[in-house]
Simulated scan of single mutants.
Amino acid sequence: MAQTRRLTAATGPDRLSIDAVVERMQAFRSLWPARDGVAVFNRVYLTVTQEIGRCADAGGFIDRRAAVTLDVRFAERYLAAVDTVASGGRPPACWRPLFRCRSHPGVRPLQFALAGINAHIGHDLALAVVDTCRTLGCEPVDLEAPFRQVGDILALLEERIREELMPGPDLLEAADPLTHLLGCWSLDRARDGAWLAGRSLWRLGRMPELAEEFTERLDHSVGLVGRMLLTPLTRCG
């Protein structure tokens, strides 16, 4: 097995980048109503991003520079989608279901959160691996350990969702459609798929047309899952 090359550690600028991401996410809270579907996802993602910043400050990453760069490149994909919508443009297909349904009264908060996580991890994380390799001048193999560590913190998304958004046991019955919805999507599988997709995209770098087609198909397939996750489960009116 090839030995993984350790990337050079860095300090101040990386932390400032995380701070800038956190500041933008915090600003969104004053722009969107609490029940807004994108706001629901933003609250959960903000908590996890802050935790990654704390972990970086405490020296908890094997390779701090790689982990922080990956986190920032990852977050920039979400922020770019928000900016695109705010300027009247069309975001990537993976994000469109969430932005289109963000005010739908028949969609539960848990569904909004899952749809955002699906778009961000299923599509954006793979592209963030490629972005990070280009930024640091490394190969995906050099990012495997930081990717796993950041992924473990991202798993807090699921924990946070269950704490804040899951209905009580009296509401979440076996026959509830939400119960079945929860069983149809897995953060772990999405994360593993993102790692494979990111490595594949990197290999396709010398074949730009094929890489573009791969990226487009990934975008639309993740968007399809997002549409299913946002199927209204509550009757309106």
Rank of each mutant, 00 (worst) to 15 (best):
136 L>P: 01
81 A>K: 10
183 G>K: 12
205 G>A: 08
142 D>Q: 01
48 V>C: 08
210 L>P: 00
184 C>M: 07
77 R>Q: 13
112 F>C: 10
229 L>S: 09
36 D>Y: 01
125 L>N: 04
101 C>N: 08
230 L>T: 10
16 L>G: 13
84 T>I: 15
72 V>Q: 02
185 W>G: 00
98 L>H: 05
145 A>T: 15
201 L>F: 02
45 Y>Q: 12
159 E>L: 08
145 A>M: 15
51 E>I: 11
113 A>D: 11
123 H>N: 06
99 F>C: 04
199 R>E: 14
176 D>C: 05
56 A>N: 08
114 L>F: 09
190 A>S: 15
128 A>M: 06
36 D>H: 10
194 A>S: 12
133 C>M: 01
65 R>T: 10
48 V>Q: 07
117 I>N: 00
209 E>A: 13
29 R>E: 13
204 L>C: 03
5 R>W: 06
65 R>H: 10
2 A>S: 12
139 E>Q: 14
12 G>I: 03
146 P>M: 03
199 R>S: 12
206 R>H: 14
99 F>V: 11
192 D>Y: 04
226 G>S: 05
229 L>K: 09
8 T>N: 00
23 E>I: 04
117 I>F: 06
196 L>W: 10
45 Y>G: 11
111 Q>L: 07
8 T>Y: 00
72 V>N: 03
14 D>T: 04
232 P>H: 04
32 W>C: 03
203 R>G: 14
133 C>T: 00
87 S>P: 01
147 F>M: 04
117 I>A: 12
205 G>D: 05
57 D>V: 11
169 P>A: 14
107 V>E: 07
123 H>V: 02
194 A>V: 00
110 L>R: 10
124 D>M: 07
222 V>Q: 05
22 V>R: 07
222 V>P: 06
150 V>G: 09
139 E>V: 07
104 H>I: 12
188 D>Y: 05
152 D>Q: 15
106 G>F: 05
150 V>D: 08
95 W>T: 07
221 S>Y: 04
206 R>E: 13
18 I>H: 03
179 T>L: 09
221 S>I: 02
14 D>R: 06
217 R>N: 10
230 L>Q: 13
58 A>G: 15
132 T>D: 00
154 L>N: 15
9 A>R: 11
19 D>H: 12
40 V>N: 01
49 T>I: 15
60 G>H: 06
17 S>V: 00
70 L>K: 05
236 C>N: 09
223 G>A: 12
41 F>Q: 07
55 C>Y: 09
12 G>L: 10
200 S>D: 11
25 M>A: 03
228 M>F: 15
113 A>L: 10
53 G>Q: 09
126 A>E: 00
177 P>C: 09
61 F>M: 08
38 V>K: 06
